[in-house]
Design a protein around this nucleic acid. Structure first.
Length: 951
RNA sequence: GCUCUCGUGGUGGAAUCGGUAUACACAACAGGCUUAGAACCUGUGGUCGCAAGACCGUGUGGGUUCGAAUCCCACCGAGAGCACCA
């Protein structure tokens, strides 16, 4: 037998695949296309690590299977080579970025080849190639033309170490720079911005057009952060001025005890003369401005503010007069930069109100609890003859009205303490420990599960929690509350519309009383109290009615706000695409004419950031000084460059037509290949690259360049690979695993197998080479089997069935990206194969299903051992035989009251027949003793699986 | 604080329209092969019991169900993302 020596076979086939170009995608083929995309890497100095490789390998297996399925597969690769890390690396190593980048790409390509990845290299792209970035610049010109790129003086994040401005997204939550980890500062500077906010709603809506995993979708939604609310005007007493306020909770307006504006708010300048303590206010403004990002995000920080003395706002609903504050917990950039403060129903407002001694007025009552249970030890419970509880089922929002008379409390079907059952007793004990003595009643709502009392947290409160109801409204018949002599034990469903009339009938708001003590703020929806004519309404209804009223009086309107902000598009760096704009004293910012593209990055010796806020390009006078394209006068080029996201926004289009010098890509090619069928990448790019590129693609769609509204039909993300120490693989931790070492030791196929087997593809996994052995062993065994367990005889029926079952499982698992169970099923199969043998034909089937995973071994077995024609990767994916998969014998399980008590084998056909199964099961020796002298009240039968006797 | 995800043997994990929990692999132990080691092969896998078998068992408590890792509620814990977002 020839031993398995991967180093010998792997390079041999890698060379042959390259030579024969078997992985090239064909433009405009008659075959159905399939575009599989992975995020193209930034070619870093150290080469890539096993974490990077994981998703490429997964998509490689996927692409290989799709090719075998008969698709014309495009699986391309390129280089996202612009950006800060390239520049930093080059600075450190005293080499020009273009040289180091080229070197790094060579390393990456060597590594990629050694893993046997099936990329189509004829379409390789590089974002730093002027022929490529010509089109990055072209897109910018189009954005400029449509008014989606603009310049504005903005507060930007500045990193004093890297001497550059940063996007919000590059600053971590603690205010440090994502790359260097050092604190950042705020600076004001003229910057280019892209109006991604114009696309906010479409970016949100069109998530419906694509298949993204739930996690990605939710994160994008949160990032866009749509919130619906109302904008309304508060008048300032004695002036014509008004303050615009945005709120999502207009239903709480009767509880507003102040207005709070951002320190930068324009009202301060407007009414400067009226503010009696203007010096104090100015001082506060200055202090707020000087605060670093770090201080402003400090959670433990107490809220500060300053009252605008002499300014009184008027609540348009209650006509109450309330003070106005400026505070830095209000963001100028979100909403209107002003809020109404409702301390009783907002945690931040509550903290602020306590500090400044403002009234806390509750206007929303939680409505699902009645205060009767349990009696508060610190308060006299009101005596009432009738108690009503309203419970809202959160699922379908139906409301249940329960009413019973005091006399009947003890007669509830279950639960009264009077007739303690063990569970109730235990509950009462728990309650008594918490300080509630003399408990009289623990009522169980009929049909619901039970009423549980517990201490929620911070041992401040005890409140009652009712488990939700399990009833369904069988018919929607209306119930006349007044007439209905409500049966004390029967629940009565009422619809939400009826609640208002119900309240009127009862006219008893006591039932909304709460358990909470005032130091816990209730921020949810509820029933309005102390809110004038809106009292008694539910929050949702109240919001609608209040907005209508505002519209009528022309005081406000329903509005929508987004958290997402415009995208700062300037960088003060050398290693990026120059922004194609010329600044002329006469004409202003003039776009470079399309015919002059690309604006090439000049070669320059000294490319260190200037640190003044200007890019190093500013020093190259003969490049900077130019003529204005409009007036031909003296002018200067824009010296800022684009962020590294610019080149990656649209790269997937360039793969379709990488050498096109007339357009981004030919229309027919885009029409054929787009959209990307599956886009696989890291979860960390969900709100950056993924959202940005969707925006740019939509823009290109609007100007008629691309054929559809969404670039990626399907997006999945993979879990990151952590180092053996469970930390993120990073050079600074020294836990980076280089695939080269593993390839050298065990071969590429072992690495490929292991990366898939290590754990669920979408979850984070830590690298642990213990089970790498198992994968190597597996391949050795497969190798041995091909040589020793392939015979010129027909495969036994049993093993053939298992082979076809495995083929089905492998195919399904690849489609569902469940690579770990795919490997497991292959391993399971060879455990069977070892006990038997396969015919040559069936061995070939096995080679095909293992080919996407272990392409080298499969090719060697296909060509050299089984003597077939090159290449296994161009064979059709095997069809499993439905009939062969069906087992003829099945194991039936016998349960008594749901517990497994025995099992027996029977014919698959008979196992579908309840009578036959019951009959056989009754005769089973383990079962007889259970059934003796007893009658099974019913039995549950699951065809082909089990029978359950209920005694 | 908010949003999302997750919690199963010594370990990575499998099983979710509710139906035999622990597939597959690693490690460990025992045995075989071997001068020896490596490699390879076989066996074992919660507790009690000689055994048949019984009982426990998927973070905790409760519920629904003939039957729950899976569905519902609460709690505890871990991870990720966002964060003074009105």
């Amino acid at each position: 037998m020839i031993p398995y020596e991967p180093e010998k076979i792997e390079t041999k086939w890698q060379d042959k695949w390259e030579e024969q170009k078997i992985y090239q995608a064909i433009d405009g083929s008659k075959k159905q296309k399939f575009y599989a995309l992975i995020e193209f890497p930034y070619p870093s100095g150290a080469g890539f690590h096993v974490g990077n490789a994981r998703s490429w390998l997964a998509m490689d297996a996927y692409s290989r299977k799709k090719r075998m399925n008969g698709f014309n597969v495009l699986y391309p690769m390129g280089w996202d080579a612009f950006g800060l890390p390239a520049e930093n690396y080059a600075l450190k190593n005293k080499l020009h970025p273009s040289i180091t980048t080229a070197q790094n790409i060579a390393t990456f390509k060597r590594q990629i080849k050694s893993l046997g990845l099936s990329f189509d290299w004829s379409r390789e792209i590089n974002t730093t190639d002027p022929k490529y970035y010509k089109w990055t610049q072209w897109i910018f010109l189009k954005l400029l033309e449509k008014g989606l790129a603009y310049r504005a003086e903005t507060s930007v994040n500045w990193c004093p170490i890297c001497k550059t401005t940063l996007a919000d997204e590059e600053v971590l939550a603690d205010g440090s720079h994502e790359r260097c980890g050092k604190p950042t500062e705020k600076r004001f500077q003229k910057q280019w911005l892209l109006k991604i906010t114009d696309y906010a709603q479409r970016l949100l809506d069109d998530l419906n057009l694509v298949d993204y995993s739930q996690k990605i979708r939710v994160q994008q939604e949160n990032w866009i952060g749509r919130s619906e609310g109302a904008e309304l005007k508060f008048g300032i007493k004695g002036t014509e001025s008004q303050i615009n306020v945005f709120t999502t909770r207009i239903d709480t307006i009767f509880g507003a005890s102040a207005l709070v504006v951002a320190p930068e708010h324009k009202i301060i300048n407007q009414l400067e003369d009226r503010i009696k303590n203007i010096d104090e206010v100015r001082g506060y403004q200055k202090k707020a401005k000087d605060k670093s990002e770090l201080e402003r995000t400090d959670l433990a920080k107490e809220k500060t503010g300053v009252r605008l003395e002499g300014i009184i706002a008027v609540n348009p609903f209650s006509e109450e007069e309330i003070p106005v504050f400026a505070a830095d917990y209000i963001m100028e950039s979100y909403g209107t930069g002003a809020i109404m403060m409702v301390p009783a129903h907002d945690n931040r407002d509550y903290g602020f109100a306590q500090k400044y001694n403002l009234p806390i007025k509750e206007v929303i009552a939680p409505y699902w609890l009645d205060s009767k249970y349990p009696p508060r030890p610190d308060k006299q419970t009101e005596k009432r003859e009738v108690v009503t509880i309203i419970v809202r089922n959160p699922k379908d929002k139906k409301l249940l009205c329960l009413k019973w008379k005091k006399a009947d409390w003890q007669s509830f079907p279950t639960g009264g303490v009077e007739n303690d059952d063990p569970k109730t007793a235990a509950r009462r004990e728990t309650l008594e420990e918490t300080g509630y003595k003399n408990l009289k009643f623990i009522a169980q709502i009929p049909g619901s599960t039970y009423v549980e009392f517990y201490r929620p947290h911070k041992d401040s409160n005890v409140y009652a929690h009712f488990q939700y109801l399990v009833f369904e409204l069988e018919n929607e018949e209306k119930i006349d509350i007044e007439k209905n002599e409500i049966n004390n034990h029967e629940p009565v469903w009422i619809s939400e519309n009826e609640i208002e009339s119900f309240i009127n009938v009862e006219n008893q708001l006591f039932m909304w009383r709460r358990f909470k003590t005032p130091d816990l703020i209730y921020t949810g929806y509820g029933v309005l109290i102390d809110s004038g004519k809106y009292s008694g309404l539910f929050s949702e209804d109240a919001c609608n009615k209040m907005v209508s009223w505002l519209q009528e009086k022309n005081l406000g309107n329903a509005t929508i706000n987004y958290k997402m902000r415009d995208w700062i598009f300037s960088r003060q760096h050398y290693w990026g695409e120059p922004i194609p704009v010329i600044h002329c004293q006469k004409c202003g910012a003039v776009p470079v004419p399309e015919t002059d593209l690309p604006v090439e990055l000049p070669y320059v010796e000294n490319y260190e950031p200037s640190g003044t806020g200007e890019s190093p390009l500013a020093n190259i006078t003969d490049w900077v000084n130019t003529k204005c394209p409009q007036c031909q006068g003296e002018a200067r080029r824009e010296t800022d460059t684009m962020p590294n996201w610019a080149g990656s926004n649209w790269y997937f289009l360039r793969y379709l037509d990488p050498d096109n010098s007339r357009e981004i890509a030919a229309k027919d090619k885009m029409k054929y290949w787009m959209p990307v069928d599956i886009y696989q990448g890291g979860f960390e790019h969900t709100t950056l690259h993924l959202l940005y590129s969707r925006f740019i693609y939509k823009f290109l769609y609007d100007i008629g360049v691309v054929p559809g509204p969404e670039p990626y039909a399907k997006r999945r993300s993979h879990g990151i690979v952590l180092g053996p120490d469970n930390r993120k693989m990073s050079k600074s931790f020294g836990n980076v695993v280089n695939p080269d070492d593993i390839v050298k030791k065990h071969g590429a196929d072992t690495l490929r197998l292991y990366e898939m087997f290590i754990g669920p593809f979408d979850q984070a996994v830590s690298w642990n080479e213990d089970s790498l052995q198992g994968c190597f062993r597996f391949l050795n065994r497969v190798w041995k089997l091909f040589q020793e367990k392939v015979k010129e005889e027909e495969t036994s029926k049993d093993i053939l069935r298992k082979l076809h079952q495995t083929a089905r499982k492998v195919g399904e698992d690849i489609e569902n990206l469940k690579f770990n169970t795919m490997v497991a099923s292959l391993m399971k199969f060879i455990n069977e194969w070892e006990k038997s043998f396969l015919s040559k034909e069936d061995a070939e089937l096995f080679v095909k299903i293992i080919a996407p995973l272990a392409p080298h071994l499969a090719e060697e077995a296909w060509v050299e051992i089984l003597k077939n024609k090159f290449s296994v990767h161009q064979q059709p994916w095997p069809k499993f035989d439905e009939k062969l998969i069906i087992e003829d014998k099945v194991i039936m399980v016998i349960q008594i009251n749901g517990k497994v008590r025995g099992q027996f084998e029977m014919d698959n056909q008979d196992s579908q027949d309840q009578a036959k199964v019951t009959d056989q099961a009754r005769k089973h020796p383990q079962i007889i003793k259970y059934l003796e002298g007893k009658e099974a009240s019913k039995n549950i039968f699951v065809p082909g699986k089990l029978i359950n006797f209920v005694i």
